[in-house]
Design a protein around this nucleic acid. Structure first.
Lengths: 287, 287
DNA sequence: CGAATGCTTGACTGCGGTCAAACGATGTGG
DNA sequence: CCACATCGTTTGACCGCAGTCAAGCATTCG
């Protein structure tokens, strides 16, 4: 069940609708009742950086295809190259790496609205593998070499904004996503290096709540968390047993409620104080 | 002493030269005897990504000023904005963050050739503070908004390469640096999350050796390491005492020799096996 | 020369890991 | 529809890696 709660929510408009809704869907295009998938990416980015109308339109105008994957599937293999830029539309994935003896570290999570292959426009290879944690819907847009080759005009815009607007939209997007990913990785380093299990867990829950909230996937302090305790352990650098005990402690302290893949933050302020959490540290992009 | 070894080395050509050298310096420009400072940055980047002649020339042609700072000085404050892109020419600095109770985590090191304010072209603020560990020479080049505004042509190039060459050099540089920084942060997460003290230390020493080697600051397996055990502790998420014991263990195992701020890797292969180290994981940029 | 800084060592502690077993929920095939 | 296997969670007992506390050294520097 824990794996499907988010999914049910995400699909509600589609699978669980009333008869009336279904009729609506038939009458207009799917886009009318369901938001354009790419909007979730725009929303995510806009939550952190100022996107001009022009930029939003540009992103919407990108040619793209959607695609879905089961849970437990490898989306990206460390060291591989990609020819397209991929957004997560729904579902969870994680970046991870293994040590030769099997120890796993989850480096971060890819949530709806996130770009999977960050930094791709610089031309390199993937720095981590990415694996789905739940079923996932992806949006791919063919990109760098290809698009730019066929349309060199993409390299210049007449942006009249703050100069950075002159940077081609797609590149700016990649740059933004890279920076966000870096800031999150740095948060993660601090968590693992200098925080206790209790603090780490509080910090991670707040991060996920904030990120999901930015794309409308929370209901107040409640959000679904399709992670096993094993995944939490591998993310926070702890053992499963200790994760279990840490969660019990947080519950006992009346800071969170958890169950069936759903989390409720009972006292976000207290959690933030414990974890020294400040939302989107660093990333005040708008100028 | 440990703080000055690197410095002596870096300055050797300038301060410790013979009378004859001094004459040479007088006769030609400083650039003739001393490599152009910006070349170290080019060398660093080229060690990891293919840079065309055109790109290298572009970087060299950037207007720039040099600047030096003492050790223990703040170069960048978390949350601040910068109008210039800054390269480290010599010396060490570190990205760090504090918890309210004083615990410190070093998120990474900035070595000669590195870009300090990674991701700056995306327009945001600094995600960490940066502090000098030794005296440092910097090279600043006025940038994003400013340059692009005054010279929109920078946004298009006729690059005939792999498409990514069409991306304006400066932006590509920033993108590359961001990706490198991200890959290193991810390495760091794995270290802190799933490796033992012994493994972490081996991994860090190999990383630093590799990065210094890329800019010619090693002599075979030897390099100078101007870090106190306290700094190592804050980087690796350990206590000073444990750092000390871990180093002793590495010495006892005949894997490294250390002293007076100088490190010698006695068995890099064994260290790599212990730490699961692969140089520049992820970053095969050249196509 | 004393003061400061950094390194080293020993004794003790504790956070978090390991091992092991039991329990609940889910799911699959006969 | 139940038997059984699987997966994830929970709990208890014990252990060990790394932290803390404290003191003693070695260098450097004003």
């Amino acid at each position: 069940m824990s794996q499907t709660v988010w999914y049910t929510t995400a699909r509600r408009a589609k699978g669980g609708g009333t008869g009336k809704r279904a009729t609506d869907r038939g009458a207009t295009s799917a886009i009318a009742t369901k938001t354009n998938p790419i909007d979730i990416a725009i929303r995510r980015i806009a939550s952190v950086a100022a996107l001009s109308e022009r930029e939003q339109d540009f992103i919407r105008s990108l040619p793209h295809t959607t695609d879905s994957r089961r849970r437990g599937v490898i989306l990206v293999t460390e060291g591989s190259r990609t020819q397209s830029m991929t957004f997560v539309i729904s579902g969870w994935a994680c970046r991870q790496r293994f040590l030769p003896d099997g120890r796993r570290q989850i480096l971060g999570f890819a949530l709806p609205g996130d770009i999977l292959d960050v930094g791709i426009l610089s031309g390199g290879t993937a720095s981590t593998s990415i694996v789905t944690i739940t079923p996932v819907e992806l949006l791919k847009t063919p990109i760098p070499a290809e698009m730019l080759r066929s349309n060199p005009e993409l390299c210049k815009t007449d942006g009249s904004g703050d100069g950075s607007a002159r940077i081609p939209e797609l590149v700016r997007l990649d740059l933004l996503a890279s920076k966000l990913e870096l800031a999150r990785a740095q948060d993660h380093v601090l968590r693992l290096g200098r925080q206790t299990a209790y603090e780490r867990m509080a910090h991670l829950l707040l991060e996920l709540h904030g990120r999901l909230g930015a794309v409308g996937l929370t209901r107040g302090p409640v959000f679904s968390l399709p992670l096993t305790q094993e995944a939490l352990a591998d993310a926070l650098g702890l053992s499963i047993v200790h994760i279990n005990r840490t969660l019990q402690q947080l519950r006992a302290d009346r800071l969170v409620e958890m169950g069936a893949g759903v989390v409720k933050l009972l006292d976000a302020d207290a959690l933030a104080a414990i974890a020294d959490f400040s939302p989107n540290r660093s990333i005040r992009m708008a100028s």
